[in-house]
Design a binder for these strands. Structure first.
Ligand SMILES: [Mn+2]
Ligand SMILES: [Mn+2]
Ligand SMILES: [Zn+2]
Ligand SMILES: [Zn+2]
Lengths: 139, 139
DNA sequence: GTCTTGACTTGGACATAGTCCAATATAGGA
DNA sequence: TCCTATATTGGACTATGTCCAAGTCAAGAC
C-alpha cells in the first residue's frame, strides 16, 4: 500500500498519521469495511483518531478513485480498496460478509437499447445475495 | 389495486383507512417511492396518518411479497409495487428517477460455480446508472 | 344495531449512519 | 526554526428507520 501513499503524495496530499493508518487498514483482498469498522481498526493503532477524519479521508479516496464505495442493503456503506479491477459482489444475507466476484458476461450487454429510455448509461452494479458457508452451517 | 386490497382481505388483514391510502399511493407503473414520499402522498388524503403506520404497512407488504424494497445508493429505500414481474433498475444519477428494465440475459447465469465460494446464492440485483434525458439536457 | 376484543395506529423516544462546523493542531516548505 | 494553508477534532445536527405504551377501531358475535 506504499504505492497508494506515493500516489497520494504525488497528488499533493499531506501524509498525516491519520491518513497513513486508514490506508493501512484498507490494504488487502476482499476488504469491504464500513466507516465504523475502519474507525475501530484505525483506532487500535492511533487511539485518538476521530470519526470525522475517517469519513473525510474515505470520501477523498473515493473521489480520487483509489477506493470504491459499495452500497448493498440499507445498511452502512462499505469501502473497497480493489478499485483498479472492475468486479461485482456476493453478499451474505446472514452476516453481511462480502466477496469479490468476476462475471463471465458483461452485464452492460444485457440491457438492450430499447430498455434505455434515452438515458446515457455509464455504470452497472451486480450484487448476488445468499448465505455464506458459516451462516448455512450455523443456521 | 383493488386486487391487492382483496388479496390482503383474504389474508385476514383489517382494511383500515391508512392501509387503503397507502395501497392507492403505491398503484402505477415505474413507481419507486421512499417511505417519506409515501407518507407525504398518503397524508394528502388522510392528514393524520403517522410515519409509524407507513413504515409498518410497507414492511408488512414487503413480507407478503406484494411490494419490493429497492436499495440503490446509500439514501432511503424505495418501495416498488411491481413485485410480480421480476425486473431490474435504471437509475438517474442526477435526479434519482428510476425505471424498470428487462434484461436479455439472466444475470444469475453470469456467476460461475467457481466464483460462488460455497455460498447458497438465492438472489441477484442489477442496477444501471446514468443520466435521464431531462438531466442530460439540463446539464 | 350494539358490544367486544384483539389488531391497528399514534406520537414520541430512541438508534444508526452520516454531515457540518468552529476551534485547534500540524505537515512540509521557506 | 517558523509560518501558514491544510488537516483534525468533538460535538451538534440531519436523515432514515425502529420501538413502545397508550389509545382507537374493524369486523365478527349477538
Ligand atoms: Mn469488492
Ligand atoms: Mn421497479
Ligand atoms: Zn454469513
Ligand atoms: Zn434525471
Amino acid at each position: 500500500m506504499s504505492d497508494l501513499l506515493q500516489r497520494l503524495r504525488d497528488r499533493g496530499w499531506r501524509l498525516t498519521a491519520q491518513r497513513r493508518v486508514i490506508a493501512e487498514v484498507l490494504d488487502g483482498e476482499h476488504v469491504h469495511y464500513t466507516a465504523d469498522e475502519v474507525h475501530a481498526k484505525a483506532a487500535r493503532r492511533l487511539p485518538e483518531i476521530s470519526r470525522a477524519s475517517v469519513y473525510n479521508t474515505l470520501g477523498e479516496l473515493v473521489a480520487l478513485g483509489e477506493i470504491v464505495e459499495v452500497t448493498t442493503d440499507g445498511r452502512a456503506k462499505r469501502y473497497d480498496p480493489n478499485a483498479h479491477h472492475p468486479h461485482q459482489h456476493l453478499v451474505c444475507a446472514g452476516c453481511g460478509m462480502m466477496r469479490d466476484v468476476q462475471l463471465t458476461q458483461d452485464p452492460m450487454a444485457a440491457l438492450p437499447e430499447g430498455e434505455r429510455f434515452g438515458f446515457a448509461v455509464s455504470e452497472v452494479a451486480v450484487t448476488y445475495y445468499g448465505r455464506c458457508p458459516d451462516c448455512v452451517a450455523g443456521a
